[in-house]
Simulated scan of single mutants.
Amino acid sequence: MKQMLTKALAAVMALGLLFSCEPVEDREDLPATNLDPSEINISVTNVGNDVTMTNSTPDVIPYWSYKDAAGNELGHSNQNTVNTVFPFAGTYTVDFTAYTRGGAVQAASKTLIIASNDSEYFSAPEWSNLTNGVAGKTWVLDMSGPIGWAGFDYPYNPNGDDYWNWFPDYAGNEWVMPNKDWGEMTFNLDGGYNVSVTQTALITDDQTTKTGNFSYDIASHSMMFNGAEMLFGGDYYPDVSNWSSLKVVELTPTSLRLSVVRDQARNPNDGPCQIVYHFKPKE
C-alpha cells in the first residue's frame, strides 16, 4: 500500500511540473541571484514605426509583452532583443519581466508614443480606397445595383468550373430589396483597423450600430470583421451563416463589392454561391 501511495505521489508531482506556468527548469540553470527591479537594464526605442526592445540584464530569462492604448495585447517575446513594427499612431505600453532563479521580477512599464501611421506599411492603394486612412471612409449600398450573385470562382479564377455572375440593375428588379436607407459602413485606420456598421432593420427603419475591427488580406482578397457584421439589404440574412467572413470582389475609389457565402438557403432550389453586395462612397 505504501509503495502504491509513493507511486501516486510521484505521478502527481510529475503532472505539476508538466503544467507549470513558469520556466522552472530554465531558471534552475541560472546563477543564484536576488534581483531588484532597479537593477533591470532594458531599453525601448523607435525610429518611426520600427520598434526595438533590448534587455541588457545578465543572467535572466527575458519576457516582453506589449499592448496598445486600449489594453489589447499585440505580442510577446522571450528574446533579449525584439524588433517589431507598430503600424498605427498611438500610445503603447511595453512590459518586461525578468525570470531569475529566485523568481519573477517585474520592471517598470515603458510608454512609447508613435507619432503617425506607417505610410510604407499602408502604401498599397487598396488601403486608401477602402479606408481613406486615418480620416475614414463611409460606404452605403449602391441602389442602382445593390446586390448580385456569383459562383465561387468569380472573379479571380476565370478558368474555374464555377465562374459566373449576375449583377442585375435595380430598375426592373425591384424585388431584390426595398429601396430605402439600409445604413452605412465606415472603415478607418485611426490607431487600428476600425470598422463601424449601422444596420437598418428589414421591416422597420430602426437602426443598430456595432463597432469592431477588421483584417484585410489584399493578396487573398479576404476580409474578416470582429465585433460587427457586413452591411446588407433585403431578406437574405437567414441564408448565410457567417456575415463576418467576407470576400473582396471589387475595390476601387468609387466602388466596393463584398460577398458572403450563401450556405443555408431557405429555398431548396438555391444552391451555395456568393451573395455580392455593391457599395458606393457616402456623399
Rank of each mutant, 00 (worst) to 15 (best):
S123W: 03
P125C: 01
P125F: 04
W127P: 10
S128P: 00
L130R: 05
G133N: 10
G133P: 04
W139F: 11
L141W: 04
L141F: 08
D142M: 03
S144G: 06
S144M: 03
I147Y: 01
G148Y: 02
G151D: 12
D153M: 09
P155Y: 11
P155G: 13
P155M: 13
Y156P: 01
N157A: 14
G160P: 13
G160S: 09
D161W: 02
Y163I: 04
W164H: 09
P168V: 03
P168T: 02
N173A: 10
N173P: 02
M177F: 09
M185T: 05
N188Y: 01
G192M: 02
Y193S: 04
I203D: 13
T204Y: 00
D205M: 10
D206P: 00
K210S: 10
K210H: 11
F214G: 13
F214I: 06
S215N: 12
Y216F: 15
A219W: 01
S220Y: 07
M223R: 08
M224V: 14
G227I: 11
E229K: 10
G234D: 06
D235M: 14
Y236F: 13
Y237K: 15
N242Y: 05
L246R: 00
K247A: 10
V249E: 13
V249Q: 12
T252G: 13
P253K: 08
L256T: 08
L256I: 11
